[in-house]
Simulated scan of single mutants.
Amino acid sequence: MNMWRSLLFVPANRQKMLDKLGAIPADGFIFDLEDTVPAEEKAHARQMAADCIAQLPADRCWVRVNGIRSGFLHEDLDAFVGQVQVAGFVLPKQDTAADVAAVDRMLASLEASRGMAVGSIPVIAMIESASGVLFAHQIMTASSRVASAVYAGGQDGDMNVSLGATWSSEGPEMMFARQMTLLSARAADIPCPLDGVYANIADPAGFERDTQLSQRLGFRGRTVIHPSQVEAANRIYMPSEADIAYYTRVLQAFEDALGRGTASTTVDGKLVDVAMAANARRVLDLVAAYQRK
């Protein structure tokens, strides 16, 4: 099970940032070839990213390619398919299932030509528009490659432009789109739905509040844009020591109850039955997945 509390965006053409990655405790990195890289820098950014990725653990390196209508996508995929350290690709601006299906076909062709198992490269779909939200479940189930999806609702970003809404964290302006993306991911059996960036890096308190809200909503991690946001994301998405201790006791009490021939008991005055035991296993499995990072 792939789980990420923090995926740090890194502009692939910024050598100073690339040089620092080994010391940053993010669960993963997204080498960005898209919005942060001007057109004339794309080819150079691919090479810089490839050189850096070769020095990092394979399960931490993702590449955000350019969009399907950009004219750069095929070159992006061609440059990285087969590089062992690349965990997969992040697909921006996924508006319909046809977008995912088109990338799936391109990847399948490259995999086959390079002797790789067809379908072996995972992707993360970014939901960045009203169309993306409306068709989110179809997008997330358009290919078995889709390992996760990102609600890309950062302040003044593409989602704001598409919706015509004022950005807010806790208010109603963006909440339906945020929750609909999460709902679609859960309905698609995606274990680690990802929230998007918090754009104001000068507001760490706001980032913590927004990440706490994100965790309560059901997101399991998020994309971040600055190393200073990594520690808070890792801490907030990880269940607390108190929760771990409680759910460990819940599972033990439930197993003891089964040994007595019943499927219900109480822990700290709270009912524990099959559903509560399943939730306890989910939390402890989540902790184990995070700890493997």
Rank of each mutant, 00 (worst) to 15 (best):
V133I: 14
V90I: 15
A185M: 14
M3D: 03
A54L: 04
P227I: 00
E40P: 01
A242M: 06
V37E: 11
N200K: 13
V287I: 08
A87D: 03
Q83P: 02
I121Q: 05
Y246C: 06
L7N: 00
K93S: 08
N234D: 10
R186P: 00
T181E: 02
M180D: 00
P122G: 07
G82P: 09
L271G: 05
Q155P: 00
D99W: 02
I244G: 03
D285Y: 06
R222S: 10
A98N: 02
D273M: 10
G82A: 08
A112S: 14
D243Q: 15
S6I: 02
Y246F: 15
C192Q: 04
A205H: 06
V81A: 07
E111N: 11
T223D: 03
Q47H: 11
E40S: 10
H226T: 09
K93T: 02
K93R: 13
R64T: 07
K16P: 01
S214D: 07
S168N: 13
M116Y: 02
A108Q: 06
V100G: 00
I139P: 07
D19A: 15
A289C: 04
S169P: 00
T181N: 04
H226Q: 09
L73I: 10
D27E: 12
R222Q: 13
E208D: 15
Y198L: 09
L286Y: 14
D76P: 04
D35P: 05
L271I: 09
N200F: 12
V84E: 15
V287Q: 13
P239F: 10
A152V: 09
A49L: 08
M126A: 13
L91A: 02
L33C: 05
T266H: 07
E208T: 13
M238G: 05
S70I: 00
L33E: 08
R249D: 14
D27T: 00
G28D: 03
W62F: 15
L284P: 03
P172C: 09
F80W: 06
I53E: 12
Q15K: 13
D27R: 02
M140P: 01
T211D: 04
A98Y: 00
D78G: 00
N2P: 11
L251I: 11
R60S: 14
R60H: 10
S162R: 07
A277K: 04
V274C: 06
V133L: 01
D256L: 12
D156F: 14
F89P: 01
R64H: 11
D158H: 01
F254S: 05
S240M: 06
N160Y: 08
R64N: 08
R281H: 14
C52F: 02
G119L: 09
R282D: 11
M106Y: 01
I236F: 12
A205C: 04
V65W: 05
Q291N: 15
D285N: 14
D99T: 11
S169Y: 03
L77T: 07
D243H: 03
V118K: 10
T181L: 10
I127M: 13
T166E: 12
I127C: 11
D189T: 10
M238Q: 13
E208W: 09
D203W: 14
H137G: 00
S162V: 07
L56E: 09
L194N: 04
K293A: 15
R235S: 13
I24C: 07
G196A: 05
P92Q: 07
V65N: 10
I30A: 06
D285L: 08
L21Y: 11
S6K: 03
R216D: 12
K42V: 11
A199G: 08
A98K: 09
Y151A: 14
V287A: 08
